[in-house]
Design a protein around this nucleic acid. Structure first.
Lengths: 109, 109
DNA sequence: AAAATATATATAGTTTAATATATCAAATGA
DNA sequence: TCATTTGATATATTAAACTATATATATTTT
């Protein structure tokens, strides 16, 4: 129903998994009950802003508001980090040679 | 206490004002009570995620989660739009000639 | 197969967001 | 000055988030 919301929740789960964290691990780190994390990820509850921020921070994510106009540019930054050959976790190369969204830090600064 | 939260609320108010909208106008457009908007902007309440998104969308903002690492790059995009000479609303020129954060659209695509 | 781990789900109790509505004070404008 | 607009604040009610805890159901590992 709400694209922005679904997208946000999906990001949370994606990044958690990318960090190879279980809901329990995230629970331990964030202080939120595992059951609550499950409910949030599945859209069963509508978390409070502070809860979302807490969860995000634990996953080293920051929440920001972006003018809709700037969204494409911002997405471009968030999605990839530049053109690299070997890319994904398992050594696969994505079609366009770009990193997947929310890839783990391989420290490429 | 929570930088991310304060920042978010500040952005909401800033953009609302930049659009020359009163809380009542925003209320009418978003469907949320003016009293609630006031409480949210002042951090009196901890809004639900859906509420924040609703408010943001009304102001043509999208909420996204950004890897902390990418934050500087993203902020750079959100803050300015390039180097222009005359800049601010009233024709002032900022010191570095960049647009202020969350400037109104002058359509510079 | 059994054990361990991970996720989804349930219940009961507490806290708080959200609503409608109204009012007050301060700023703005006629 | 008087009227309007704006934002903050208050109250009462309803809905829902959040907590702790427990359990059931996968999924993975040994």
């Amino acid at each position: 129903m709400n694209y922005n919301l679904e997208q946000t929740l999906e990001t949370l789960r994606t990044v958690r998994l990318a960090n190879k964290m279980s809901q329990r691990a995230l629970s331990a780190k964030s202080g939120l009950p595992q059951s609550h994390i499950s409910n949030i990820e599945n859209g069963v509850v509508d978390p409070k802003l502070s809860t979302l921020i807490e969860l995000a921070r634990t996953l080293e994510l920051e929440l920001i508001l972006v003018p809709r106009k700037r969204l494409p540019a911002v997405r471009a930054i968030v999605r990839n980090t530049g053109n690299v050959a070997r890319d994904t976790d398992d050594g696969r190369v994505t079609r366009d040679g770009l990193r997947p969204a929310y890839s783990l830090d391989e420290d490429d600064a």
